[in-house]
Write a protein that binds this DNA or RNA. Structure first.
Lengths: 112, 112
DNA sequence: CAGGATATTCGCAAGTATATGAACATGGCC
DNA sequence: GGCCATGTTCATATACTTGCGAATATCCTG
């Protein structure tokens, strides 16, 4: 640890956090809901940022590379595997919970 | 439709249901909780049985074969992909909901 | 017992995610 | 501007999931 980063981008993560949410109340509000509503990709970004990790750091924890993390955090990406999700969750002291909820009627909702 | 199955195994599914839960109060009780606690495999079995489908029928709905369904319903199997889960959920008029829940402390829970 | 329906398992081809490393783009900081 | 950290994208090889068909096992029914 020892926080070796002087002033330089002290918390590179904060910069990202700032870039994404600074002065964007709606997004800040949505930050909570995002946990339950948004796509997997965004959930992963949230978790990582809230853990104060960079993609490379998380990658090391998970046992992969930044490339992989980046791909998983891409909203367009749909090929997630439970194995990877579990690995990431585990690294972030989280647990993946999967539930099948009945869709009201003919409402074909997006795939979570 | 037309329920073409006279007495023959009228609800082949009921037989399974019976085989799994008949005279097993604990399991019957767990049936509800299972929806939220048990492994993905068992969740899939529940959903299919409650929908009154055989593996082949579900397979056809999903666009795969009974082999695949069987594999997914195997408790040992861990290689689920979100893509497949979504396909099955969609066929069963359900929606896959994924959440990352923080694990209390050092309690390394099983992967949902 | 023979017949039918279901579930389970196996092998193989094909598609896809992952592992890995590299190059590139961006934004702060000196 | 130069430097550093971060994120993004690309390319390749490997591992794994899926699709598919067939064989086997088990249970129910006539």
């Amino acid at each position: 640890m020892t926080k070796r980063k002087r002033t330089t981008t002290s918390d590179a993560v904060q910069i990202l956090y700032r870039r994404y949410y600074e002065g964007r109340p709606e997004r800040v509000r949505g930050l909570e809901e995002a946990r339950a509503n948004d796509g997997v990709a965004r959930k992963l970004v949230m978790l990582r940022l809230q853990a104060g990790l960079t993609q490379r750091e998380l990658a090391k924890l998970v046992g992969t590379t930044a490339s992989a993390i980046c791909r998983l955090e891409d909203a367009e990406y749909e090929g997630h595997s439970l194995a990877m999700l579990n690995r990431i969750a585990s690294a972030l002291k989280q647990r993946v919970e999967i539930r099948f909820v009945p869709v009201p009627h003919g409402k074909a909702l997006k795939s979570a």
